[in-house]
């Protein structure tokens, strides 16, 4: 395998766009801004330290995505030590999804309601949904990032979308 290393400047340029997407995915998994930011920083440093990335530059984004997903999952797992905090966040969100929506609600409120519904999905559904519907990745890319087969990705995505539909529709009843 050839390992032509890229210089720091090239790396920064290449990662400028990727970092934004890494952050959004991390934020979706971890919910918290600070934790998402830390995660991106740690993952980007790790990738930079490996240096021999130019050869794989084409796949570098999928590679970085996989790394951030794994990193965030590890964080989530270690968070189970202070499970209480997570529960609290989620309870707050649950309370407010009991709100009802109508034509009178402004756009901001409606989008806020969607965000709550999405972030209440189980972690895997939430991540797959985000990779597809926000980041617009192909199924092949999502399979690679999530380390899931094609069927599993579709089933998970379908569940996520249906659950979101049900929860939002419920608020309009």
């Amino acid at each position: 395998m050839s390992s032509i290393s890229m210089d720091h400047k090239e790396f920064v340029v290449l990662f400028k766009d990727i970092e934004v997407r890494l952050y959004r995915v991390a934020r979706r998994i971890l919910i918290s801004h600070e934790e998402a930011q830390d995660s991106v920083q740690e993952v980007v440093i790790k990738i930079w330290e490996r240096k021999n990335i130019k050869a794989q530059a084409k796949n570098i984004e999928a590679y970085a995505m996989t790394m951030i997903k794994n990193h965030c999952l590890d964080r989530l797992k270690s968070k189970q030590a202070n499970f209480l905090r997570l529960e609290d966040d989620f309870d707050d969100q649950l309370d407010s999804t009991d709100d009802t929506l109508s034509a009178q609600n402004d756009v901001e409120e409606r989008l806020g309601a969607v965000e709550k519904v999405v972030n209440l999905l189980p972690e895997k559904q939430r991540t797959v949904w985000h990779l597809r519907d926000v980041e617009g990745y192909s199924f092949e890319e999502i399979e690679a990032i999530m380390d899931m087969n094609a069927t599993a990705v579709r089933v998970t995505l379908s569940r996520a979308r249906k659950e979101i539909r049900n929860q939002i529709a419920k608020q309009y009843e």
Binding site: K16, Y23, V44, V107, V118, E135
Partner: peptide, 18 residues
């Protein structure tokens, strides 16, 4: 609307960890 919106979010996010 939400997912379209999200695509534009945090585009100002920047770190220069190195």
């Amino acid at each position: 609307k939400y997912s379209s919106n999200e695509k534009q979010q945090h585009s100002d996010f920047e770190i220069s960890p190195i």
